[in-house]
Amino acid sequence: MSDNEQLMELYQQLLVLRHFDEFCYDLKMKDLIMNGFHPYSGQEAVAVGVCSLLRGDDVVFSTHRPQGHSIAKGSNTRAVFCEMLGRRGGVSQGIGGPMQWIDKPHNFFCGSIVGSGLPIAAGVALAFKRQGLDSIAVCFFGDGASNTGAFHEGMNLAAIWDLPVLYICENNQYGEAMPVQEFVPVSRISQRASAYGLNGISVDGMDVEAVLNATTDAVAQLRAGNGPVFIEMITYRFRGHYGGDPEHTYRSREEIAVWRNRDPLLLARTRLLARGFSEETLDELESNVRAEMEEDMEWALEQPFPTVEQATDHVMIPLGQD
């Protein structure tokens, strides 16, 4: 169990991710975020719990739903807002957009091809291993990604070469509109890890302390050179697959309500109250975080769009300088 101070820090991060996401949702509804925004609300405990254990030199690969992972890894919220909005000042200077950016100073990568991160994360881990470093690579992906060839090829490669990769499958119950039971024939996605000789585990991904506990052991194991590790985080996305999708076609209000009762922010807050923090302290923290996110958003909305010239910058290193 984490101490009070640590839980408070995690709660603050959960709030940052939630309010960031909800502002993005509004921006999407106003068409200011153009396309490609995939809300992370509901899944925050996973990004926050896992990334709180990482060092700056550890590397994270994420998906088409990257904002939570990126911010939890250290990306500046203004820079992520800008990227969502396609503005200069964004993590990829407004060229990548809501599902593909690279934040090199924070060793963060993401991309919108489902499943593709697993082999690349293995390669990063290979480099660390060859160089004798104890840095690790972390790869987040969804339940849907576990049906791609890259998932199986990548995990196998990491397993045969004992690479220090932490594979985090965020099972949010759906791949777009398709429920996971319809496309995965095993009851737990973590069972798939056993095909690669790994002891995959499934964890309550709504509970930030459960995420933290499971991941603490995993990170220690990886730094000691015994990788890879596979963890399935059981979670749920509160919003549609993308901002504004026709949710009613595939899930009921009742189902959403059941999961909202297990909101990761609510769970953490309840625990903080039980440990003696006051309602006022937690409310004040939340309104401060919200105000800060709003300020960051307002700042981002002032930033310019890239020019056409900038859109063709850095396609490659100029010949002769490469």
Partner: peptide
């Protein structure tokens, strides 16, 4: 292993880090 995607991704990932 006979995994062209993994081998290629592995090469790319390792190239990112030295």
């Amino acid at each position: 292993p006979i995994s062209e995607a993994a081998m290629t991704g592995c090469a790319i990932g390792s190239a990112l880090y030295g």
